[in-house]
């Protein structure tokens, strides 16, 4: 292979004059993690709300929830990023649009929102499935005990559902970290973008991509281990004996 390998490139100073290439990649990693973290919070919040309302007895709420999920699931993430970044500021009143566009780190906020909503639809599916996997008797028992519907969800159904859902949620968490790379199309300098820019400045294509790949794998393994530990601690053995208070 007639390619000039140079693994020492990581210690060379990048054109910004202050950081080595390795440091720029690590800087990108923090952006990747920050984007994924905030988007994940958003996704959990909205995903839970939508997931819950899809299991309520109200047909209109269920329809609304279904529409939400279909909307965010059937448009490619990249297109959703563009809608938030390029289209939204143009269709709101001009003053708001200008304000939106002049935010420092606008691509970061946009990426968090786009990724958060996109993932929330997938989380909503998991939450719904988690709740539906519980025996119908639990809901009925809670209601029979005189709990209101919100109380039944808050004290009985959700604490159980979340613990059952942890494994699929783990894979959504891993997805959101990977999907944050799509934000390079709206100018976010996250890990993949940093690797690309390192490639452009140093011409060491494969070293740059290898480093990014290794960092992604490390993140993946770390998150997987952390979540496994959490799963073990919160495991619901046969659904019986779980104390709802433990979820707090």
């Amino acid at each position: 292979m007639n390619y000039h390998w140079n693994w020492g490139i990581f210690w060379d100073i990048s054109p910004d004059g202050a950081h080595s290439y390795l440091q720029t990649l690590l800087l990108g990693t923090t952006w990747t993690l920050a984007t994924a973290f905030f988007a994940w919070c958003l996704a959990l919040l909205f995903g839970s709300i939508i997931g819950v309302i899809r299991t309520t007895p109200n047909a209109w709420l269920v329809r609304l929830g279904n529409a939400y999920v279909e909307l965010f699931r059937n448009i490619p993430l990249l297109v959703q990023m563009f809608l938030w970044y390029f289209v939204l500021p143009e269709v709101v009143p001009q003053a708001i649009g200008t304000w939106l566009k002049q935010q420092p780190n606008a691509s970061f906020y946009t990426a968090v929102v786009a990724l958060g909503f996109y993932t929330s639809a997938r989380v909503a599916e998991q939450v719904r499935a988690g709740i539906l996997s519980l025996a119908q008797g639990q809901r009925l028992a809670a209601l029979a005990l005189g709990l209101t519907l919100p109380q039944a969800y808050g004290f009985v159904l959700l604490p159980m559902a979340y613990r059952i859902m942890l494994p699929p949620l783990t894979s959504e968490l891993l997805n959101i970290i990977k999907n944050s790379s799509v934000a390079l199309t709206i100018g976010l300098m996250e890990l993949t973008a940093r690797a690309r820019s390192m490639q452009e400045f140093s011409f060491q294509v494969f070293e740059a991509f290898t480093a990014a790949t290794v960092i992604y794998i490390v993140i993946n393994i770390a998150v997987t281990f952390a979540m496994r530990a959490l799963e073990r601690r919160t495991a619901v053995s046969g659904f019986i004996g779980a104390s709802p208070a433990a979820a707090h």
């Binding site: 054109p15 910004d16 004059g17 820019s197």
Partner: peptide
Amino acid sequence: TSGTTNIKQITEINSQ
């Protein structure tokens, strides 16, 4: 534009 001499140069000027 990514990958141009221009972005490299403005990055350098930015830090200088």
